[in-house]
Nucleic acid binder design. Structure first.
Length: 835
RNA sequence: GCGAAAGUGGCGGAAUUGGCAGACGCGCCAGACUUAGGAUCUGGUCCCGCAAGGGGUGGGGGUUCGAGUCCCCCCUUUCGCACCA
């Protein structure tokens, strides 16, 4: 073997060997236990970045471990290939987005293959091919059949840079998720929506199955879905005899209601205007409030602004009339767009009512409050539950009781009902762009909206299209696409020209991997049954409430149409940290990008992977440091030389012979080396099962290398026999194969093996060999470390105590003191309390 | 404002259940080999102190024989949500 570590020769050699052996190709096999490792599929942007390297290195370490543990592994990769960047590049260069996309895929595939990840490349998918996206259309039609896809005109988020609509999930701090400094503007557009709200309750309830998901992600999804239980109550607009429905979660405070607040765009506002005695003033006020309303907000701490409409509303519980105000903080999109103002028990209402000198009426007191203190002055809102006062027949009830009873009474008396409101909205999927899945719908003057028949799928994206990026659907400019026949009446009709949000593509792609070529259905049910659920999904936290909620929604829908028989697709989720350099996320605009391929050229893929896993635990952000890569490179060089030096001699040696000897016949040096080897194996085995602190796994491997280096003289002196030496070296190579697989296979071969490491079973560590035979006990006196004693591992507490007291330094420090207590913690330390 | 996570040497980080703080690596210092070193190897490296010893995990308090770890208060950073009635 080459005496010098040369990754540029080793890595291509093994990548070719693995491919020739079809090492990573797997099939469903009901006789074997399966394990599905999934990493989030990349967008083909042109080049892989360090985030990809990190993601796939984590996944590969796990996949290779599970492989060696004997599982049948599904480990696929594909391309999230539709989307705006390719379209924007196409506009600039007047070429077709598919040119960019496919050439980028080729380039990134080559880069990924250099990384040497254990993918079954036969299963590669790209979402931009008709064989894939026709099933997006199929899912859409199935949803349409069931009333889960629908079209409506609504106010939508529009990104002026993307020139398209965004889903709520794609709006971040009022700005576009892809353009963080571009505020989203509102437009009223006819849009297609997927009724994710129909699954809101299930999306919440099924979280009980997501026990192996990061709590953070579960919480974020809970907040996003935002379920809240409350009641509608119908007030009446006094002069108009019109009902005005409000939503509240605190019906128990309704006797403290001193006003009703309307969103400025509430439908009743037009009525009020028409009947107002001072319409001019009111119209001005409305404009003013709209301008400062929550929806148009740029500032985070928006001041409360409002205006009195001059109208009154009647509270159905007590018949009181309260003024109707417009308020800038009331959202039309949530509840009913109208709220009752209870300034004594809601902070926002309090702030508003104080500002506009509206009365404040206290109706809740803490449960133990004596009667004479009930009428204390209100200086701030108290939002806690308590006991009702001044609340007619409900006075004296506790909040919980009152909520139940008042909701029931509102129902029986016909002016309200209990309800559950969600914060999550339906998923707007129409995009006014070209490079996406055409929405398979047809508009006919006679028959209205008509779905494309399933047999006519796919609706193909026309290849010849002029891309201008001017904010209307490019497909509308392609007459041969737009013009079609109505499937019902056969008369000329027009096709829908919007395309789907690309998050539709990624909502079910991981099912497709199990049988990527099937042409009769989106998925092969039987194969899905074998491979699912995904055992481990790995990706960035940024998808916590985008992709990761959409894919759950899709799975529930797939279950309801009989494609799958479970409700949650992913058993365990891992969210990796970002890759940071110089205190900021790597990005072209900041100029702090480290190009992985440059690292491959300079150090090799193994070193790059090893460094990325070593520099930080995988869930934390990773601070990139060029000097650290040098360290990883040096380490692999050291390992290589260590094995290369002895490989020739050890080739024919059998490793197992000594390891099974129970330790008795070993020389002290052998004992020491094998102890370290088994300790390392123990640490890494246990860590792979649960913790995944690859950084400490690698540091353990480094310690083993240090031990091997220190004991090298003993090897040469014959104090360590070849079998023991080889065992230690093999453990090192096996554990390294999870993180640096190419060099590991090279060394494994040099040690005389013909099968690659993936075919080797993960060895079991020997707890006896890993155990220390002497333990060093620190001895503390009054909490201060005073001495260390060596005690045989089997020693009892009494012996440890005696030895500690006999220690010279201990005697010195106890001089003149009286021992009160001696605490012996077996395996840990001795603590002496003295006065 | 609400919620979550975090704060440990010059740097990345380790300490899995309350038990020797700083593993491992980077950097730095010294030495060896060398024509040379940005290769390789060896030793050193939390702070104060010659030493004995003392101090030390954002700050302050507490529980405990013993606290980076548990409890209370405060500060800082990052992330998520942000008028959701």
């Amino acid at each position: 073997m080459d005496p010098i570590y040369n990754p540029q020769a080793i890595e291509p050699k093994w990548q070719k060997r693995w491919a020739d052996l079809k090492l990573f190709e797997t099939e469903a096999d009901p006789a074997r236990k399966k394990y599905y490792v999934l990493e989030m599929l990349p967008y083909p942007s042109g080049d892989i970045h360090m985030g990809h390297v990190r993601n796939y290195s984590i996944g590969d370490a796990l996949a290779r471990y599970m492989w060696m543990k004997g599982f049948n592994i599904l480990h696929p990769i594909g391309w999230d290939a539709f989307g705006l960047p390719a379209e924007n590049a196409a506009i600039k260069s007047q070429r077709h987005p598919s040119e960019f996309t496919f050439s980028y895929i080729d380039r990134m595939r080559a880069q990924l293959q250099r990384l040497g990840v254990s993918y079954d490349w036969r299963r590669e998918i790209a979402s931009c091919v008709p064989e894939y996206y026709r099933w997006n259309q199929w899912f859409f039609l199935k949803m349409y059949e069931r009333g889960l896809a629908y079209r409506k005109k609504s106010r939508v988020n529009w990104c002026p840079k993307c020139e398209t609509v965004l889903a709520n999930e794609q709006v971040v701090n009022g700005c576009c998720w892809r353009h963080e400094d571009t505020p989203v503007v509102e437009r009223d557009l006819e849009q297609w929506f997927l009724r994710i709200t129909a699954y809101a309750n299930q999306l919440l309830d099924d979280m009980k199955e997501m026990v192996r998901w990061p709590e953070r992600v579960v919480t974020m999804q809970q907040n996003w879905i935002g379920r809240s239980q409350g009641a509608f109550v119908d007030f009446t607009v006094a002069d108009l005899w019109k009902p005005l429905r409000i939503f509240t979660t605190r019906i128990d405070t309704i006797y403290g209601c001193t006003a009703v607040f309307l969103a400025p765009d509430h439908p009743l506002v037009d009525d009020l205007l028409a009947n107002s005695k001072e319409p001019t003033r009111l119209r001005d006020e409305i404009e003013r409030i709209k301008a400062s309303s929550v929806r148009a907000r740029v500032d985070v701490n928006l001041a409360k602004v409002g205006a009195n409409t001059g109208f009154m509303a009647r509270n159905p519980f007590n018949g009181e009339q309260v003024p109707i105000w417009l308020a800038n903080f009331v959202l039309m999109e949530y509840g009913t767009g109208a709220v009752m103002a209870v300034p004594a028990h809601d902070n926002r209402d309090f702030e508003f009512c104080t500002e506009y000198h509206l009365p404040i009426k206290n109706v809740i007191v803490p449960v133990g409050t004596p009667p004479d203190q009930e009428a204390s002055e209100t200086l701030h809102a108290t939002e806690e539950y308590g006991r009702l006062v001044a609340s007619g027949p409900y006075t004296g009830l506790k909040s919980e009781e009152a909520i139940a009873r008042m909701t029931r009474d509102a129902e029986t008396r016909g002016f309200g009902k209990g309800t559950i409101q969600f914060r999550i909205k339906d998923w707007g999927i129409s995009r006014q762009r070209y490079w996406g899945t055409p929405i398979p719908m047809i508009y006919c003057d006679t028959d209205g909206i008509v779905p494309v028949p399933e047999s006519d799928l796919p609706v193909l994206l026309p290849p010849n299209v002029k891309l201008t990026g001017t904010g209307h659907s490019p497909l509308a400019d392609v007459p041969e696409f737009v013009t079609t026949k109505c499937p019902k009446c056969g008369k000329p009709a027009r096709r829908e020209t919007d395309t789907m949000d690309t998050f539709v593509d990624s909502s079910w792609y991981f099912y497709r991997y199990t049988d990527p070529k099937i042409s009769t259905a989106p998925i092969n049910k039987d194969v899905v049954k074998y491979w699912f659920p995904v055992d481990q999904y790995i990706g960035g936290i940024e998808h916590a409430i985008l992709h990761l909620i959409y894919m759950r929604f899709f799975t529930k829908f797939m279950r309801d149409i009989g494609l799958v028989d479970f409700s949650e697709p992913v058993a365990r989720l891992f969210t990796q940290g970002m890759v940071i350099k110089d205190g900021a996320k790597m990005s072209k605009s900041k100029g702090n990008v480290v190009d992985p391929t440059k690292m491959f050229d300079k150090y090799g893929a193994d070193t790059t992977r090893l460094y990325v896993l070593f520099a930080a635990p995988p869930e934390k952000d990773l601070d990139w440091n060029d000097a650290g890569v040098e360290g990883a490179s040096r380490f692999l060089g050291r390992v290589y030389r260590l094995v290369a030096k002895h490989a020739e001699n050890l080739k024919g040696v059998k490793a197992e012979a000594l390891a099974q000897g129970g330790g008795n016949s070993l020389t002290p040096e052998e004992r020491r080396l094998l102890r370290k080897a088994h300790q390392t194996l123990r640490h890494i085995t246990e860590d792979m099962e649960e913790r995944w602190h690859f950084n400490t796994d690698i540091s353990n491997a480094m310690e083993l290398v240090n031990e091997l280096t220190e004991l090298d003289a003993a090897v040469e002196a014959g104090k360590i026999r070849p079998a023991a030496h080889k065992t230690a070296l093999e453990f090192l190579v096996i554990t390294l194969s999870l993180f640096a697989p190419h060099v590991a296979d090279e060394l494994w071969e040099a040690l005389g093996h013909s099968q690659p490491l993936l075919k080797v079973s993960w060895p079991a560590f020997d707890a006896e060999l890993a155990a220390e035979d002497e333990i060093e006990y620190p001895v503390q006196i009054n909490g201060k470390l005073r001495a260390r004693i060596q005690v045989p591992a089997g020693a009892g507490e009494e012996e440890i105590r005696t030895r500690a007291q006999a220690e010279e330094k201990v005697i010195q420090h106890l001089n003149g003191l009286q021992v009160k207590k001696i605490i012996v913690v077996p395996g840990k330390l001795v603590s002496i309390v003295a006065k």
